[in-house]
């Protein structure tokens, strides 16, 4: 049991983080808890600090509307926070959709290999989707991604009522399970693309220590964004790609302590 806990230590922490954030939002609506009210699009922390999804703000700006000062401050706070801790830390530590797609990807490992088709898809589709979201926002006058986002559908659904929204969640689950591995979060999601760019120069980073590495390749095997780990077994260095979600799965599966979370500073950049 202790061994299991240790081998999944970051996974457990991530689930705790995701679930407690969700629970605080749900409690905020149902019982009036004042820790976090609203939802991931816009919220207030302790009834005072505004927090706003910066990508939603960007889309709103593209429609030609300027949000209130409060919303802009909230957007700046979130942007700076994730620019420091790793943009896509949002994806693996906050976003509720991560639990759905993680489940799909775990099932993918258990199911017989032929159960699903593994379509190949370009991982850059998400950047096109993010650009498209801004263009469509400008053309249609509404925040284009916010209106179809399965993340919002799931998150808002859990807080305010799901309605027919479950179909979108199931669609994402099946897409990941049967069509494209890491399909939604790793290929399509424009919010993830936005955070990839936002966290490009983040301070907290995964660091590979070549001297500990036994070339078992478990880290790459389990990484949802394998392209960010080209240095494994070759050189000690920080992960430089913004697409790394800081999910720390590589640390959970590495029995040799060859992967670490670290603070990226200039002089450590190459090891």
């Amino acid at each position: 049991m202790r061994d299991f806990m240790y081998r999944n230590r970051y996974l457990i922490l991530r689930r705790l983080s995701q679930i407690s954030i969700l629970a605080l939002f749900i409690g905020g609506n149902l019982y009036g808890w004042k820790v976090l009210r609203g939802n991931l699009s816009t919220s207030r922390l302790l009834d005072v600090v505004p927090l706003t999804d910066p990508f939603a703000l960007l889309q709103m700006t593209a429609t030609g509307n300027i949000a209130s000062r409060e919303a802009l401050i909230g957007g700046a706070l979130i942007f700076v926070f994730f620019a420091v801790v790793g943009g896509r830390a949002f994806c693996s530590w906050v976003c509720p959709m991560n639990m759905i797609t993680d489940l799909a990807n775990r099932l993918r490992r258990v199911l017989p290999a032929k159960a699903g088709i593994s379509l190949r898809m370009d991982r850059n589709v998400r950047y096109w989707a993010a650009g498209l979201a801004l263009v469509l926002s400008a053309v249609l006058g509404i925040a284009a991604f916010e209106w179809i986002s399965p993340i919002s559908t799931l998150h808002r659904g859990l807080i305010f009522g799901m309605g027919a929204g479950w179909t979108a969640i199931v669609a994402v689950f099946l897409f990941d399970l049967l069509l494209v591995q890491y399909g939604f979060c790793g290929h399509v999601c424009p919010l993830g693309a936005f955070y990839s760019l936002a966290g490009k120069f983040s301070f907290i980073r995964v660091r590979h220590l070549k001297d500990n590495c036994t070339h078992c390749m478990q880290c790459i095997e389990h990484c949802p964004e394998q392209q960010v780990l080209p240095m494994v077994g070759i050189a000690s260095s920080f992960v430089t790609s913004g697409e790394c979600t800081n999910c720390a799965k590589c640390m959970d599966v590495c029995s040799e302590h060859a992967m670490k979370l670290g603070f990226r500073t200039g002089k450590h950049n190459n090891g």
Binding site: G38, N39, S41, S43, N65, A71, G141, E146, S152, F160
Partner: peptide
Amino acid sequence: ALCTKCGL
């Protein structure tokens, strides 16, 4: 355009 659907 302005509503972020936060539910506040």
